[in-house]
Each structure stands twice: as structure tokens, then as C-alpha cells.
């Protein structure tokens, strides 16, 4: 089934939420592609995300979401095509574009042998913030996220959620125009997740653009103005949640996602798994 053309919707013609946004384009991919040897991780991506939009970027494991984020943030060079941030080519002007973006990477990588304050101060210096201003902001973020008490502790003993809070703080520290969030809710408790969701809406209303990669469809459904679904490195759907449901004749984003990205009967897979775990598969085979 060639879903690419059938499901693609022009986001500029989508619902009122999108229409309200500033027409200026914050993130643009023009024929963006990345290959690793024979594997085409991302193919011919053409996406325009207007300023102030929260764009959910969904796809099954290995669909090419993180590779897209890496290309858009200048971490890897595309094999072909262009990624633009506020109209500036990421490859041509990496420093200029990196100053405009904040990133929460999927891996959750940070220097764990530093304290949160040291880490955030380091990040502040890398973005040329005044040391005092960076420190003040860092302390404020840690207070808001409820980890101010641990600000002088090395992060080696931190839980995943605490590290994630530091990473989100680091992404926001320099007040970027564009945010790339790859699974930002990983490890976060319910209250912090709620704070983050509200924060993203608030930031979008101020004109910040958010590129939001996630597997948690409920959050994407609630937070994002627009959803792009990727499968096998290609965009298979692009529109707002209601449009995607309508297109797939489904009542939830979860079902729409499954319809677009899986050709197998998930129920049958679950039953086979269950049999395999309990050993009944072999018995069934013998019978």
C-alpha cells in the first residue's frame, strides 16, 4: 500500500490551530535523506514547520525519527537534501543554527560526574551566557523541576527522571527559538510530565517551535498541533490528529498509527508471544 501520497495533507490547510501560527517557517526539510551503507534510514523528507507550531514526529522503532533529529540539529550530515532552521542551512552554518536550537536527545547522555549546577553552567558557557546569568537560570530551572536539593550532587546516582529534568533544563537554558525533543517524557513522573506539557504549550504560544518525537501517542494527541508519521524512513502521514483519524477511519490516534505503520495483526503477534513465553507454542506445534 502506498500510503505516502494518500495520507499526506498540506499542513498549511489544516485546522484553526495551525492557521493561527505565524507563517514564517522555523524548521524546513528539503529532500532530506540519510543512508548508512545500503540502509536508507531517512528518504526524501520534505516538511515545513511554521514558527510557533508543536509538531509531533511519530514512527515505529527504526523508522528514522532520531536520525532526522540528528540531521536537523547538525549532529550528522545528511546524505542529500537540506535542513533549515529559520531559513539557515544547518550544514552550511552549523554554529549559527545550533545557537537557535535546544535539544533533548533520546539517549539521555550527559556528563554524570558533574553536578547539575556544574553541567548547566558548562552548557551556559557553551552558549556564551554570562556565568552569573547561567547560574541563576540553572538554579531556577532546578527549583521548578523540584531537584534543587540535589543541585550539588554528582549525577551518577540520579534516576532517569532526574537526569531528564537536567537535560530539559539544559535545552531551555539559552532560550532557544526551536526545540527538538526526542522522547522528552522518558522517566519523568506524572506531575513533571504535566508541567512539561503545559510548558510546551506556553512556549509555542510565545512563538517557539517544538519538534516532538515520541512513542506516547496520548501525549502527542494532547500537545501537538500537527503530527507527522514516519515509517521505513518515509513520511506516511502528515496532518493534525483529527485529519489522521478521518483518513484512516479510526477513532483514536493509536489506531490510526497502527493502521499506518503496521501491516501485521498485532493481536496474533501477542498471542504467539504469550504461547512462546509459557512454552505452549511448542506443545501447539507438536499437536
Amino acid at each position: 500500500m502506498d500510503t505516502t501520497d494518500r495520507q499526506r495533507i498540506d499542513p498549511t490547510n489544516s485546522d484553526s490551530k495551525t492557521a493561527r501560527q505565524d507563517s514564517a517557517i522555523a524548521i524546513e526539510f528539503r529532500g532530506l535523506a540519510k543512508s548508512f551503507g545500503d540502509i536508507e534510514a531517512v528518504q526524501n523528507l520534505d516538511i515545513k514547520i511554521p514558527r510557533g507550531q508543536i509538531c509531533g514526529y511519530l514512527g515505529p522503532n527504526g523508522a528514522g525519527k532520531t536520525t532526522t533529529v540528528k540531521m536537523a540539529t547538525g549532529m550528522i550530515a545528511p546524505t542529500s537534501g537540506t535542513a533549515l532552521i529559520n531559513g539557515i542551512d544547518v550544514v552550511e552554518s552549523p554554529i549559527q543554527t545550533k545557537l537557535m536550537i535546544g535539544v533533548v536527545p533520546e539517549t539521555g547522555a550527559l556528563y554524570e560526574n558533574l553536578t547539575p549546577i556544574e553541567y548547566l553552567t558548562l552548557v551556559g558557557r557553551l552558549y556564551h551566557l554570562e556565568p552569573d546569568a547561567a547560574l541563576e537560570k540553572a538554579e531556577e530551572f532546578l527549583r521548578l523541576f523540584g531537584i534543587a536539593d540535589s543541585s550539588e550532587r554528582m549525577m551518577t546516582g540520579f534516576s532517569r527522571g532526574m537526569k531528564q529534568k537536567v537535560l530539559i533544563s539544559a535545552a531551555l537554558l539559552h532560550n532557544p527559538d526551536v526545540l527538538f525533543l526526542d522522547e522528552p517524557l522518558a522517566g519523568l513522573d506524572a506531575n513533571t510530565a504535566l508541567i512539561l506539557k503545559e510548558l510546551l504549550r506556553e512556549l509555542a504560544s510565545q512563538g517557539k517551535t517544538v519538534f516532538y518525537c515520541s512513542h506516547i501517542l496520548e501525549v502527542v494527541e494532547k500537545v501537538c498541533d500537527r503530527v507527522v508519521i514516519l515509517n521505513g524512513g518515509e513520511v506516511v502521514a502528515d496532518g493534525n490528529v483529527e485529519q489522521l483519524k478521518e483518513m484512516t477511519h479510526r477513532t483514536s490516534l493509536e489506531d490510526a498509527f497502527t493502521e499506518l505503520t503496521s501491516e501485521e495483526d498485532l493481536g496474533a503477534i501477542v498471542r504467539a508471544f504469550s504461547r512462546s513465553i509459557t512454552g505452549k507454542a511448542r506443545e501447539a506445534g507438536n499437536e
Partner: peptide, 24 residues
Amino acid sequence: SRQSSDDRLRHGDRKSEQAADWGQ
């Protein structure tokens, strides 16, 4: 397109990647 990507990389090298930032 591959060549153009490489060309742009080199261009990027010249323009903004050269300077060493001593503060950083």
C-alpha cells in the same frame, strides 16, 4: 546531491567552523 552536501560542509568549515572559541 551528495556532492552538494559535501560542498556545503566544506563551505560551512570555511565560514563558521574555523574559529576556536577560547571561552568554550
